[in-house]
């Protein structure tokens, strides 16, 4: 399934699914990485829910669709990040959920594969706060105030 065409810097309309506070699902098996992502997202007023593996993420998303973004690591125990992306894109309730892969996978083919599976954006580790905020901006999430 294709990614949501209505997001990104070249979308006709900005992502309209905004509410206060915005909510993010962070899916990463590393507690340290979840904590870094939580810190950055919290600084731009996100409420952050964490999942330590793919299965847990799918479980959360089966009952709670109210997220503005999901950040998905590639190498996850039980269910891989790529499978998580594929499953999310199969669920019509989650069709508009922006998906950002956050991963140590830096091969061209991997990036292409993730986008093909339905990820909207891709950030390679290591990254800094500015890079992550830029990726969120690409996904139509307002971050200018935080960057200023």
């Amino acid at each position: 399934m294709m990614a949501n065409p209505n997001i990104g810097p070249f979308a006709l309309e900005p992502n309209e699914k905004r509410r206060t506070p915005m909510r993010a699902l962070v899916i990463d098996d590393s507690r340290a990485m979840r904590s870094i992502l939580r810190g950055i997202l919290a600084s731009i007023d996100f409420e952050v829910i964490e999942a330590a593996d793919g299965r847990q993420a799918i479980d959360i998303l089966s009952t709670d669709h109210d997220f503005n973004i999901a950040l998905v690591d590639w190498n996850l125990p039980i269910t891989s990040g790529l499978q998580v992306v594929t499953e999310i894109r199969r669920d019509p309730h989650l069709a508009g959920l922006p998906l950002l892969m956050v991963t140590t996978e830096t091969e061209f083919e991997r990036v292409a594969q993730a986008l093909q599976a339905g990820a909207d954006e891709y950030i390679m580790k290591p990254f800094d706060r500015e890079m992550l905020l830029d990726k969120l901006a690409i996904l139509g999430i307002p971050v200018e105030a935080a960057k200023a």
């Binding site: 070249f10 061209f108 990036v111 986008l115 890079m131 830029d134």
Partner: peptide, 19 residues
């Protein structure tokens, strides 16, 4: 990698860059 990680939409990276 740092430079392409900053501000470049992944879709454009895949379309217009080679590793």
């Amino acid at each position: 990698q740092t430079e392409v990680n900053r501000g470049l939409p992944a879709r454009m990276m895949v379309k217009y860059f080679r590793q």
